[in-house]
Amino acid sequence: MYFVELGVKGLVYGCMYAMMAVGLTLVYGLLRILHIAHAGVFALGAFIAVVVANETGSLALGFALAIVVSAVAGVAIYRFAYQPLLGHAAFVPMIVSIGIFIVMQEAFRMVFGAYGIAFDYNPYYTATVDLAGIRLNYVEIAMVVAATVLLVGFGLFASLTRAGVGWRATVSDPQMATSFGVDPVRVRYLNFIFGSGLAGIAGALVGLLNNYVEPTMGALVSYKALAIIVLGGLGSVRGTLIASLILGVVESYGTIYLADIFDRDAIGFLFLIVVLMVRPQGLLGRG
């Protein structure tokens, strides 16, 4: 049972990584930009959630605003930082993105204080449910449910709706899609709205899960999300999902069985190196 519990915990982390990494891989697929500032959007979501929840007493309002503000921030980053640089070499927007991320972290520190903020009212991270001997807290369950609903919903949207098909068409061949009447600019906005909103939810949930929102919380997940999208095959949403879950589980077992040699963060990268040696194009990337 103990062994299974480790795996379940790993899947929960995997869902968290997935919500963060999907936005990254979507941006990469569409624009070929490594959107490092995505981690700043993630932390922004967490800060909005905690500040609004503490001020108004309404966690629901906190989450709602976290999603809206994150989505707006993501769109703003695209419009004002990436769009003017689209013709440049890939490293140019990437460096800008790193800069935005650093500025965001320092801005959080100045605006919200360097010591971070805890939720005043958060019974959810200590309230647990026993599922056949495995104990999960409410936030962990919410994390799994949110990831499943949102990502399945996204999958249905992409395969069943007109806008979704247009999106996929733009990712695989922007020129052809444009000539068929798909507006690539609209697709990009949609992309940033969805990916950033997702990161905002993930940030707010991680804030609840730790009961602690700190200026540097984006940094913790940013490089892991980068590893995941490389692992999944850059730009592949399905690959990213699978890689997220695998990394979560590998880390979970690794924390216990390999921790004498590596820390948890190193385990993820070791796994990345091994996979890339065998499959340089990533798990589901095209060879």
Partner: peptide
Amino acid sequence: EYTFGLGERQFGPIIASVKN
């Protein structure tokens, strides 16, 4: 003895093991 990094905030696997 279980070890963890400075960035760690989620201890699920370690706690499951301590319980064990």
